[in-house]
Design a binder for these strands. Sequence first.
DNA 1: ATTTATGTTTACAG
DNA 2: CCTGTAAACATAAA
Length: 288
Amino acid sequence: MPELPEVETLKRELSSKIKNKKIKEVVVLNEKTINLPVDDFIKKVTKRKVAQVSRRAKMLIIKLDNKKNLVFHLKMTGQLIFKTKSGKHISGGHPQKGGELDLPNKYTRMYFVFSDDSILYFNDMRKFGWVKILNEENLQEISLRHGVEPLDKKFTLNFFQNTLSKNAGKTIKQFLLEQKHIAGLGNIYVDESCFRAGIRPNKRIAELSPVEIKKLHSTIIKTINLAILNKGTSTRDYRTSSGQTGNFVKHLKVYGRHKQRCLKCKTYFIEKIKHAGRGTHYCPNCQR
DNA sequence: ATTTATGTTTACAG
DNA sequence: CCTGTAAACATAAA
């Protein structure tokens, strides 16, 4: 689930909750989740303070006061859930089921206990996600492999046009999913952005008109911004921080709506195909 | 009861 | 170079 808006939501919520807190204990329940031997990992993190919480692409970064960075990638099913000592959870990511979360549970891969006894849990049903300790250099390397942030000033129409022209042979969806061009878009927001721009996801970049490119550029920014305002999307049981569902679900026009009537033309039905290796949704009438 | 798809990314084969 | 598939894994939908 977590694409840019979901991770950004987590960042904002966690930042206010854990900044300046000291980590007094780290418990690793699944060794494969982390990038160091458990002992090393624990040694590097224990007794450190949270200096800053940030985001790059779909990664959440917790900078510690010893120049190390705890970097999280939630992949498909990862979640970060923060609970105060009283047990109220105020940060989510991709909770399961509808009921209250019992933590730690069978999907908890590791957790961090702060000195005020609040706890940050990393859950991940499918174990695709990871938590790494990286120094500044490692982090830089990873960052360099990622493209521009869609909400950054550098994501100009000019930049978009130029980068697209270098990838004319690809389809627009293939391009948008590749993190090295624009970082943070995933399956949901690519399909949604394409719908809002009136472009079929499997259209070749070479076939896009200048007007379409301009439209898509502004549409991506608007869609991501709106999604962040709504604290992200989740198709099923996702709940944000405060235990609420991400409200962007209400704004989905095509994702998860196959065989349902298009909300724009109210005539045709949303189609779902497999493209770029992913389920791809579009209105055959409104998108060309 | 089986099979297929699922929000991600990387590695590898062709 | 590009493109498609498998692989990490568990669950729900088809």
